[in-house]
Simulated scan of single mutants.
Amino acid sequence: MLVPAPPNQLPSLSFYGDASSKQCAFMVAGGFAVSGNRINEVEDSIAAIRDDAGIRSEFHWSQYRGGNRRSAYESLIQYGFDLIKTRKAALHVIIAKFDGYNHREKAGDDRDTSVNRMYYQLFLHRLAAFYGRARRIHIRLDAGNDCKDICRMRNELCADAYKRHQTKPNCIVSIEPVKSENVGIIQLTDVVLGAIAAKQNAVAHTSPKKDLADFALRVSGRHSWASDTAPSARFLTVWHLKSRSRSP
């Protein structure tokens, strides 16, 4: 039985997550962590990028075709990495090799189940480990079957975080699915993760997506997405999960 939730006076942090390329050799999941007092500012900035470009639909990696939207998508990606560089947000990414991976530990398991497991590892060893002692954490995930299980695992995750990382009790206050069309930060996550997955899977796009993936890597300041960030990294972390172990 968990002890009472942490005091309400603790500052809040929201994590906006998504997953990309679960049908490919490498799956990429992750998202942006944003302090509660900055959420409106970030949402307004993303909306302004969309409005300035005259885009009525949501930003979405799978729908990107270049053309007159190229500048807006590049501005969105640039804005995301500017948030990281100015320490106004953090990006936490987990990459798992899904080729040859056993997605059926038990009846009914599939690739969506595996994505849920990857989310668990990311939330436990990044969100809880980094923020669970001093923040109330809210997790918002792009709705779909690949987050259905994890949205029901808050109690288990909090107990695990308390035991492994000495977090505040119930450090993760909520895990909920949201519709990406209503949340600009989820759209930002979708585009950035799509770009990372494209590079990691060595996708030879004949469409403008190749250029956008190259742009994202360039503005990130990294040479590739194929290696883990240093253990000391906090605002941009990349973790290649190499086994089913619960330890990074």
Rank of each mutant, 00 (worst) to 15 (best):
E43T: 11
V34E: 01
L217Y: 13
S45E: 13
G17A: 06
R104C: 12
W239M: 14
D160C: 13
A161V: 11
G80F: 06
N102L: 13
D109M: 11
S14P: 04
A213V: 11
R136Q: 13
T189H: 11
R126H: 14
V178S: 11
A195R: 00
K242I: 05
L76R: 08
D214V: 09
R152E: 13
S20K: 13
A230V: 05
S20E: 14
A128Q: 02
T237Q: 12
A47E: 14
V28Q: 02
V34I: 15
S12I: 03
L83P: 10
C151G: 01
N182G: 14
T237K: 10
Y79F: 15
D109G: 07
N145F: 11
A5I: 01
L241E: 12
A89R: 10
H92N: 04
H60K: 15
P4V: 00
E181C: 06
Y119K: 06
P7A: 10
D228M: 12
A134S: 14
Y101R: 15
H205S: 10
H240I: 07
C151V: 14
P248F: 12
A161N: 06
D214K: 04
S207C: 08
D110M: 05
A128R: 03
E43G: 07
R104W: 07
A5S: 15
A33Y: 01
H165N: 05
N37Q: 02
C24M: 03
V42R: 06
F235G: 03
Y131T: 06
F32K: 07
I77A: 13
R164K: 14
G36S: 14
A72F: 01
L236E: 02
G184D: 07
G108W: 13
Y120H: 12
R56D: 04
A53E: 08
C171N: 11
P4T: 02
W225C: 11
R136Y: 03
S114W: 05
F59D: 06
D190E: 00
S207L: 07
F59C: 02
F26M: 08
S35Y: 05
E181H: 13
Y101S: 07
M118Q: 14
D44M: 05
D228R: 13
A25Q: 11
K210F: 04
G67S: 08
V183Y: 11
A213F: 09
A204T: 11
P177L: 02
L83Y: 04
N102P: 05
D44W: 01
I77V: 15
G66L: 08
E43C: 10
S114P: 00
I139R: 03
A216R: 07
G80P: 09
H125L: 07
A129E: 11
G100P: 01
F15Q: 06
L83A: 01
L157H: 09
G80L: 08
Y79W: 05
S232V: 09
F123S: 01
